[in-house]
Design a protein around this nucleic acid. Sequence first.
DNA 1: GCAATATTTCCATATTTCTCAAAATATAGG
DNA 2: CCTATATTTTGAGAAATATGGAAATATTGC
Lengths: 111, 111
Amino acid sequence: MARHFWAVEALSALAHDTRLRVFRLLVQAGAEGMTAGAIAAAVDVPASTMSHHIATLERAGLAQSERESRMIHYRADYDGMRRLLSFLIEDCCQQRPEMCADLVSAMACKP
Amino acid sequence: MARHFWAVEALSALAHDTRLRVFRLLVQAGAEGMTAGAIAAAVDVPASTMSHHIATLERAGLAQSERESRMIHYRADYDGMRRLLSFLIEDCCQQRPEMCADLVSAMACKP
DNA sequence: GCAATATTTCCATATTTCTCAAAATATAGG
DNA sequence: CCTATATTTTGAGAAATATGGAAATATTGC
């Protein structure tokens, strides 16, 4: 299992229906994050299954956890995601600016 | 196999060491693209294995093919990649501009 | 210490993906 | 039509990933 690119791990983590959904949820949840239970309930997946998926996101550097009494809060790791996006964009812009052309407009982060 | 997000297919395609390498190669190759054989040779992978990987990229909308006499030229599908990047960025910027903050600089496509 | 709650880890199974040799297809040039 | 080249498809075994129940761990309150 020779993973030359760290990015592969991050891409793999997002390349799953449930996990992509969870990541989107976490992004929306913001700094507060969500408890493991809340996530599992929102996506309707058994706790143990969800635990695996969240762990995968965390290993990939796309989520962070913090225990708060009995619950564990998870939140999106913006830094990790930014790293991944930068990698993809830099890689692609390398010689072909046309690929990133309209991306700026996508970045018009609406309030 | 309920794939709710089309993006999952694109992410899966890139979430593999060999395929990510091939995609990067194709981006660098530009409009000319590369023949299947050249790709397989560059990455040092048997032809049949490579054929599967390239097909995966093509299905995911990240590569395009065009036969040219006996060879088949493959090139990166910039449109597909831009779609994926837009999806990821829009999704993340949604409420958290801090995630996309430094991305603009990554987009300073150097000549 | 015990019961209740929140979550993970263990374990086994099911499914998917990966790999590549061998056979099939496509094209070009005698 | 035959041969050579370029590539894909087929097929089958190996490896990785996904899934979820049951057991284990952690925390709190009584």
